[in-house]
Write a protein that binds this DNA or RNA. Sequence first.
RNA 1: GGCGCCGUACCCAAGUGGUAAGGGAGAGGUCUGCAAAACCUUCAUGCACCGGUUCGAAUCCGGUCGGCGCCUCCA
Length: 470
Amino acid sequence: MKLNFFNTMGRSVQDFKTLEPGVAKLYCCGPTVYNYAHIGNLRAYLFDDILRRVLEYAGYKVDHVVNITDVGHLTDDNDEGEDKMVKSSRETGKSVWDIAEFYTEAFFKDIDSLNIIRPTVTPKATDHINEMIAMIKRLEEKGFTYEAGGNIYFNIDKSPDYGKLALRDRQDLHAGARIKVDSNKKNPHDFVLWFTRSKFEHQAMVWDSPWGRGYPGWHIECSAMSMKYLGEQFDIHCGGIDHISIHHTNEIAQSEAATGRKWVNYWMHNEFLIMNKGKMAKSSGNFLTLDSLADDGFSPLDYRYFTLGGHYRSQLQFSKESLSAAARARKNLFDKVIRLKGETNNTPSSIISQEGQIYIKNFQEHLSTDLNTPRVLGELWLMLKDVGLGSQDKLAIIYEFDKILGFNLENLEEVEAESLDSDILELIDSRNNARKEKNWEKADKMRDILLEKGIIIKDTPNGTEWTRNV
RNA sequence: GGCGCCGUACCCAAGUGGUAAGGGAGAGGUCUGCAAAACCUUCAUGCACCGGUUCGAAUCCGGUCGGCGCCUCCA
């Protein structure tokens, strides 16, 4: 299966070829673990998951690395801002290390509940300080750094093609548009590799280094850890669209300066989730977590379905209304799968018919054309409505699609008929007696009573069924 | 100030030169004592607006209006 992805480097859809045949090396920027991930953050990891699944579907062995940033960085846009980890620590009374551990666990819990396949490696920044120091030394030896005011800076004027990812000329850069430029910098866009003299007090995490006790700049961790786990060159680097101009630009500058050659072949960036006419952001309080969605009765898989309905490179409009639509669609899909399992005695076709193969072919085309998951969902519904297709074929095709969609439909089971309280069973019994007597008024009244107790009644030709009103 | 993206039905959202996918909601119907579920049918002569190119434009070009993002940590 041939894959084509939009590469931010070059801004075009390009054929995907790996450096090493059959192996795809993928690095995705991960979370800073000072707070819960909000659903906008999670959109990025859902995108990573689709990408990873498609690569595996296409036959690649995937080395998937996601960093855990447990070193704090700037909180916000004013000079009085403090380290995020320190801030969280102060507010909760826990140590920065406990904060990091707590939110790292929360992150894994979130991605597990979204059916995101765990990355092959999830390195923590604090476990790789030595690798970062080694890389800074390498840059220092090659003359890309300078020391000023106690900090070590990367000199972007030594990188001729600085800004190539962001498509910007140095001259166009308007530094300090919103913040004061660090007066230690030779070029306003130089960035810190190692801090020893932070303007922020109470830096809780510090390490010894050749330049003094301090802590690393933000960008260096991704360069150091990706190279450790994937090598000095690898295939794909992804992250949010906001990373293009600064973080990834700086990662490229320092990585290629260190090795003297091209670092990453494909750059893939996901767009933002938009809520209330603006991006979801922790700092503005304009954000929701998976848990807060659960409070409104949404399952994590509802959110997974929702994000699949939009293309990863388009902003996605979030609202309770749009999520409800996705939740409804997801439920309809699951119901349909359960019914198909019943009809086929849980036996999908081992060989899909000629007509069915068309859907598989379209499915693959949609994915190989820059991961068009909205079209995959469209294809799925067309297939399900196709009267010329047998149930066993449909089930087999669904399972094929689900390798990417990731709803774990093969293991989907009808909710076990839990034992009901005897008083509810009695109500159902007596309602059926009322129905036999054609006492509809009484029967309807009892149905209302059951509904109040959270039981939905369905009278089918095979008898009365009930489900819990979830 | 610089850079980038976007504007498609009630909502979400595909489609980037050949005559508007899909989902949700809504409407009508079959079935049912009624309901629910299921199934069927229906739902944009038009893609912000104005010009232009073309046999043909939601799609390309120019302009106008509106929205979002980045240039600061940030998915």
